[in-house]
Design a protein around this nucleic acid. Structure first.
Length: 421
RNA sequence: GGAGAGAUGGCUGAGUGGUUGAAAGCACCGGUCUUGAAAACCGGCAAAGGGGCAACUCUUUCCUGGGUUCGAAUCCCAGUCUCUCCGCCA
């Protein structure tokens, strides 16, 4: 959510910067609506002052007049609220403004590679995809998921299930013990205001799974990422300056409808309705965001370094960034079967964009309440990391060598072999 | 599912119709004292929004929305949320 004052004073700059984003909200009327809103507020307040004066004077002769004023105020207020609502609905649907160093571009083709780490090993056999490997091992079962649930779900079985769990534990250990994050095991359902806070609502409702609790309770949604629930920890709160930065990590299932991507990545477990992800969230003073983004990205890449997986870091262009982000690095891991780098983490600074939606603030050294800075990043997507390990560590016979970093988490096994039948 | 209690500033917590935006305490900020710190003492300290270059000023806000009244934190109605007890349950 943007600060209307900023927009008022910097409209041309604002408009130009928003035009670089994939923005579908019309912003042309924004200044007029704002003006109208403020004019109505003034009129209303003038009347309110009159009424207040009468009440204070206790002059019975004026009591009738006061009643009349009340009616006028009521009318004006109704109209003003309608205008305000219109203004809010526009404001809450406009994406964040990119920072200066974000490359301008329209889609993923305009993202820029920043660095490439690790050597791509050329094997003397044709590498299989993770789903071929998994099905052959009888440890990834898509058909079974179709039977019990539907498409875009998967059963992970046996040693691969163990590996999935190991990855999650390994990542959590690195982030809590080495990177200074506090582990959280959060609710997997989020309320409507929580979803609004991080920007999933109102614009992206179609991507979310809504859950009906039997009371006529408020709306609830399955979290599409732990970012939602972790960031909202500071919702409606004035955080103590001495408590910042706050750093949280959680490993949770994530649920997405992926409405926009039917037909994309239909094979395998790249794009599922449900997947595990280890998520990092930082709440910082608002001038610390960009430094924290570097720190967070390093925390995420450290996992890939330890697993010895080849990856590259890219900066997303203005058109490809998420709604709430002001700057985003994607980390892409090498997948031999596709001969491509695929996204395995996305680390974003949101500046005070989410904090304004959540009303999350801290008192700065001048004792003023200011909005916090929020950041989120995957550290890492567990399902995709599993895929990356399988494909990069596969052997000719279809077995999978276990990365050394994971062995302590997998009973010191060094290889996954087909289940004996 | 049944019964009850509650929602007031960063926090704790007074306050049942007329300058109460709201006592008190804690926290925080400034000062006195001190070599320094602590303690003690003095002073300050809610937010959001509107107008103004500014000093400043106005409006709103005691969970939300209605209602009564010239006037509501305070009275009435509806709702939301939280907590406790019982039942059910991993």
């Amino acid at each position: 959510m943007h600060d209307i004052k900023y927009i008022r004073e910097n409209y041309d700059v604002f408009k130009k910067k928003i035009s670089n984003r994939n923005n579908t909200t019309k912003i042309d009327d924004i200044l007029n609506i704002d003006k109208k809103n403020r004019k109505l507020i003034q009129e209303k307040e003038t009347l309110e002052k009159q009424k207040k004066d009468i009440s204070k004077s206790k002059d019975e002769a004026m009591f009738q007049k006061s009643k009349e004023i009340s009616l006028k105020i009521k009318e004006l207020t109704e109209y003003q609220l309608k205008v305000k609502k219109e203004l809010d609905s526009i404001l809450s649907s406009v994406p964040n403004i990119p920072t200066e160093d974000v490359p301008v571009g329209s889609d993923e083709k305009d993202n820029k590679v920043i660095e490439t780490i690790g050597d791509i090993e050329s094997k003397n056999f044709k590498e299989k995809s993770h789903y071929e490997l998994g099905e052959k091992l009888d440890m990834l079962d898509f058909d079974l998921a179709t039977k019990t649930t539907g498409s875009r779900f998967v059963f992970v079985k046996d040693k691969l299930a163990l590996m999935e769990r190991a990855l999650s534990n390994f990542m959590l250990d690195v982030h809590t013990l080495e990177n200074g994050y506090n582990e959280i095991s959060p609710p997997l359902l989020a309320s409507e205001t929580t979803m609004f806070g991080t920007g999933q609502l109102p614009k992206f409702e179609n991507d979310q799974f809504e859950i009906k609790l039997d009371k006529n309770d408020g709306r609830k949604f399955l979290i599409p990422t732990a970012e939602v629930i972790l960031t909202n920890i500071v919702k409606n709160q004035i955080v103590k300056l001495s408590d910042l930065p706050l750093r949280f990590v959680a490993s949770t299932p994530c649920f997405r409808k992926e409405a926009g991507s039917y037909g994309k990545d239909t094979k395998g477990m790249i794009r599922q309705h449900q997947f595990y992800k280890v998520e990092l969230v930082s709440i910082v003073e608002n001038d610390q965001c960009l430094g924290e983004l570097e720190r967070m990205t390093k925390s995420a890449t450290k996992i890939l370094d330890r697993l010895k997986l080849p990856y590259r870091k890219i900066i997303l262009c203005t058109g490809d960034m998420g709604f709430s982000a002001e700057k985003t690095y994607d980390i892409e891991v090498w997948l031999p079967s596709e001969k491509k780098y695929r996204e395995i983490s996305s680390c974003s600074s949101c500046g005070s964009f989410q904090a304004r939606r959540m009303n999350s603030r801290y008192k700065n050294t001048n004792n003023e309440n200011v909005f916090t800075g929020t950041l989120n990043g995957s550290g890492l997507a567990v399902g995709r990391t599993l895929i990356a390990v399988m494909e990069n560590y596969q052997n000719k016979d279809g077995s999978i060598t276990i990365p050394e970093a994971l062995r302590p988490y997998m009973n010191n096994m060094d290889k996954i072999l087909p289940i004996k039948s």
